[in-house]
Amino acid sequence: MTSHRKINMLLYDYVDGTLPLEERRIVDEHLASCNRCRRDKNTIEQATGYLTTVKENTGDSFDTAYWNKLAGSIIENPRKQHSSYRNSPIPRIAYIGATAIIISLFTFIYVYYLQDGTFTGRYAEDPVESADPVFEEYAAFIERSKMLLTGFMNAEPYNGNIDISVERTVARELADDTRQLLVYPFDEQAADLIHELQIIHREIANMNDEDTGEKLVFLQTMIQERNLLFRIRMEEIIIQNDLEILAGYVYPGE
């Protein structure tokens, strides 16, 4: 007599029709005399039957042009990387080490030499609060910029009564943040993005109630043409996900 457990392990393939003939015969014999396993088989049949209703090829609705555009946007915005590093097994470790050294150096310089009132930030006020305050500040800046620009892009144009007072306040704060961030040695891509966001944030901060209609459209077009939301998303991914890929990606547990 075959055990229930062994039969249970075979039931999905049995229902699916992919079980080899010999094993199928064993399952048939067992099911003929076992109510419990027959009930399990019916359960699996019903559950898979219902799941079939959500089996659809949603990706088919996208044509070649869509995938080309996606590929193009990724290729045109690569993070700059030295070609000789591309195939080396150690660039990431070197990069992390170098970043840590640079950050430590700038922390030292900032704490000991630049506290002359030129500008004040949490970095200077509490240098030991975080292991990597520049990184955190940059990540927070990117996240807030995304929220601001996403909301701004969704604002209705040509509506005379648009209230963007909150956006103006946030944009002013973010424009101030960029001045601090640009002090640090970001790579070319990040520095470009910060610089362009600084321009946009200043423009939003300087909007008047009278020019919201036309200027709104102008700035929305500017954001779109400069591909800012996509570039922000790229930065977010770089910030959040580099290490998980590097680690070979472990299957997430419960």
Partner: peptide
């Protein structure tokens, strides 16, 4: 790996739909 953009386009065309379908089943909105 050598930086050929055309090859990457081919790869996305080849696997994009399948990747989309799998991701959609997890997420449930477009």
């Amino acid at each position: 790996k050598e930086g050929n953009g055309h090859a990457f386009r081919l790869l996305i065309q080849q696997y994009g739909k399948r990747v989309y379908d799998i991701a959609y089943n997890f997420i449930g909105n477009h």
